[in-house]
Write a protein that binds this DNA or RNA. Structure first.
Length: 357
DNA sequence: TCTGGGGTCCTAGGACCC
DNA sequence: TCTGGGGTCCTAGGACCC
């Protein structure tokens, strides 16, 4: 029988920090930004269960977190540490004889044709704990959606199984937002159609969805609500489609020449990084967030085709920047470069598509 | 709750071509 | 010629996730 399992590390970022600071175990810990909650424009990346008990949530401003939980210990985010811990977790998972599909720092799908998924889950959980001292929860399902949701039921540190048989009993009364892929906007649109629970959505006539959602969503929503999901496992290493970097300034930028130099630097820096991975840049996008919070994105395909030249990309980024009227204080600047997929020609330089009939 | 950073995918409209 | 029926490319924006 084919089983999909989902490994989900428990409060991963905080857990990695506590490994380095064992004295913090069992305490309210909040990780985010530079770890200084007195500075504005920083948010919570991860909060320990003890901090969550005070209402601290990821995405919340650090200042708010500090107000809600006076005794919390605040720590700066340390991507390199999470990268390293994640690599150990995934290597451990890959040491089992099953396909593994990594989903970010702290999640992975695995499994396939396994006789005893609970046994596999127990062994994986024990191996991860032994290798990293980190706790994982594991969901078992007949597809990825079921496995992913099962992992939430398994938290913390447990194993939980969902099947088509148990799905309605577990999910029918839950809000549509419990489904992976249904966010606040979609939930609101569904609410306007009086579709509030997963059960409502599973039983609805797709014809009522079609005017509000596109054909894809219309097909997907009721299927997901009935517990259907992807059963494939791709072991292909993840290939980035794009790479971006953005900065929120502690105080707004008002000098357009500073804005321009910052954009040029971001673009050149990103290009240098992706070139190290043997990638070429095809498009460049510039993101500007004006005070108080108006965000715009403008982009351009590189006229000269895919390039590895940082100066070409930064010149293009400046061209894109000209699409903005920089007449207001700038709160955030970002640059994204889109990457040529390896093994794909970009058409530039290809001979004579002169065609015609 | 004055609201980060890094990603992916989908849709829609306009330009342009045959 | 006052008007069609595709198709593709490009950009903007929306939505979602961790």
């Amino acid at each position: 029988m084919r089983w999909l399992l989902h490994l989900d590390m428990d409060q991963f970022i905080v857990a990695v920090e506590v490994l380095r600071r064992p004295d913090l175990a069992g305490k309210p810990v909040v990780v985010g930004g530079d770890g200084d909650p007195s500075r504005p424009r920083q948010v919570v990346a991860s909060a320990s269960y003890e901090a969550r008990a005070f209402g601290v949530r990821s995405g919340m401003p650090l200042r708010t977190a500090a107000r809600r939980c006076r005794d919390a210990v605040f720590l700066a985010t340390d991507h390199a540490a999470y990268d390293a811990a994640s690599a150990t977790v995934m290597d451990t998972l890959r040491s089992f004889d099953v396909p593994v599909e990594v989903w970010g720092w702290d999640e992975a799908y695995f499994g396939g044709d396994v006789a005893d998924p609970f046994r596999l889950a127990r062994e994986v959980r024990a191996a991860v704990l032994a290798a990293t001292d980190l706790s994982a929860s594991i969901g078992i399902g007949e597809n990825k959606l079921q496995a992913k949701i099962a992992a939430q039921y398994a938290k913390p540190g447990g194993i939980f199984q969902i099947t088509f048989g148990s799905w309605p009993g577990l999910m029918s009364e839950r809000p549509v937002s419990a489904l992976w892929g249904v966010g606040p906007k979609t939930a609101k649109k569904l609410d306007a159609l009086s579709l509030r629970t997963v059960g409502d959505l599973a039983a609805c006539d797709p014809a009522v969805l079609l005017p509000v959602f596109g054909p894809r969503m219309t097909a997907w929503l009721p299927a997901a609500a009935a517990g259907h999901g992807d059963v494939s496992l791709s072991t292909e290493p993840w290939v980035a489609r794009s790479k971006s970097r953005e900065t929120t300034f502690p105080t707004d930028l008002t000098d357009p020449s500073l804005v321009a130099s910052h954009v040029a630097e971001l673009a050149a820096g990103l290009t240098s990084e992706v070139v190290l991975d043997g990638r070429l840049v095809t498009h460049v996008a510039v993101k500007v967030r004006f005070a108080p919070f108006f965000t715009y994105l403008r982009s351009m395909k590189l006229r000269e085709g895919a390039t590895a030249d940082p100066s070409v990309v930064s010149a293009a980024a400046l061209l894109v920047l000209e699409k903005f009227a920089l007449d207001r204080p700038v709160r955030l600047l970002g640059v994204r470069v889109d990457l040529l997929l390896p093994g794909v020609g970009d058409g530039e330089g290809a001979v004579g598509a002169t065609g015609g009939d």
